[in-house]
Amino acid sequence: MKDTLIAVVIPSYKVKNHVLDVISAMGPEVDRIYVVDDACPEGSGDFVEKNCGDPRVTVIKHGVNQGVGAAVMTGYLAAVQDGMDIMVKVDGDGQMDPALISLFISPIIAGEADYTKGNRFFDLENVLAMPALRLFGNAVLSFMTKLSSGYWNLFDPTNGFTAIHAEVVRYLPLKKISKRYFFETDMLFRLNILRAVVVDIPMAAKYGNEVSNLKIKKIVTEFLIKHLVNFVKRIFYNYYLRDMSLASIELPVGVIMMIFGMVFGAYNWVQSISFGLPSTSGTVMLSAMPVIIGIQLILAFLGYDIATVPTRPLHQRKINGSKK
């Protein structure tokens, strides 16, 4: 681990009351700490500069508020330029325990992952302790993220405790990644396009008296369209542009057949009601069979999609390739 340079990126916006405690909890495994003041109205960047004596800390300030994603990207770029190997993103509100950093970076150092993220749903006791609304919102968002990102083995997509290898950051289209609250889930979509390996790290949920800026009721609706767009992009990139397989045929044929059966069945049902004529067995079969076959084809596609979750780390492919 000593041969690997570890950086921590702390996006700072309205976290003045907690950020110094977060910094002071950083262990010796951390080589650099980047506090990115995203035009914080509390002046958290200036506050850290005046009150923090840790020589590992570098404060970066945004002239205007750009969002948590933009702040993290700024920290990533600074860390890459300084030669860091792994970047860990930790929020400045005290909800994330810096003592867990070693757990997040270990799979990356071991060559088992390109990107790690926290999962507060691993322990049943922690799940039951979560606020009901947050639990429901995360469950909905997790399912949408599985569809749009292709990482069916992951949960808790809005968890911001993450770590990433610098080689992977160099491949990411940083300017295209969502700059605000969709950042974490958009990152997963981008990582899947790169075929990067992502691993969940079990962690406890921690809630204090801090005020979260994330409103579940708002983002579930807001994220739906973004997830749909990413799903379409991912399917096009992975199943038609980059490669083709039997699954490339199963999905469109299945969708077409299901829609045809539903529309044909609905039309004949309306006609039957309007004219008082019973539908023939042939009409019923012509409606039902395409729906049944269509669903089977879609399920077959999903089975293939689940089975093709990336398993070979991108940064290991880069390292191995450079040795040849």
Rank of each mutant, 00 (worst) to 15 (best):
A113R: 00
V36E: 08
L147K: 11
K117N: 04
D38V: 01
L228D: 02
Y207R: 12
V199H: 06
N138T: 08
L20K: 09
V140G: 01
G45W: 12
P98V: 13
F161L: 00
K233F: 12
D93C: 06
M257Y: 10
R170T: 07
I105G: 07
N153D: 13
P313E: 10
M258K: 01
V197A: 03
R180E: 11
S248T: 15
S44W: 06
I293K: 11
S178A: 15
M96F: 11
A166I: 02
M258T: 09
D54S: 10
K233T: 08
Y237K: 13
R180Q: 05
T145M: 10
V229K: 12
G118M: 01
T145A: 00
D93A: 10
P202A: 07
N213T: 13
K226H: 14
L228G: 04
L277M: 12
G294S: 06
W152F: 14
I273H: 12
G67S: 00
Q316L: 10
V15P: 00
F236E: 06
Y171N: 10
S248N: 14
V211N: 09
K179R: 15
F275Q: 04
K233W: 14
I293S: 10
V9G: 04
V197S: 00
T158W: 02
N209H: 12
F47N: 03
A196C: 01
V127G: 13
M73W: 00
G254E: 14
G43S: 03
Q66D: 03
S281M: 11
L141C: 00
P173W: 11
G160Y: 02
N213G: 09
V80K: 08
D186R: 09
A205M: 13
D21Q: 14
G276I: 08
V15M: 06
K324D: 11
V80H: 05
A139V: 07
A300W: 08
A7L: 05
K175M: 10
L299G: 04
N268K: 12
K206C: 12
L251C: 13
A163W: 07
V197F: 04
K218Y: 12
F136S: 00
E42K: 05
P41E: 04
A247M: 09
S12A: 15
M84I: 11
A39F: 13
A166T: 03
L135T: 01
C52D: 06
M203Q: 14
P173K: 06
D91K: 06
Q95K: 08
V22E: 08
V48G: 07
V199R: 02
R32I: 06
E29C: 09
A288V: 15
D305F: 04
Y115R: 08
P290L: 14
L228I: 11
P28K: 14
I292D: 01
S149V: 05
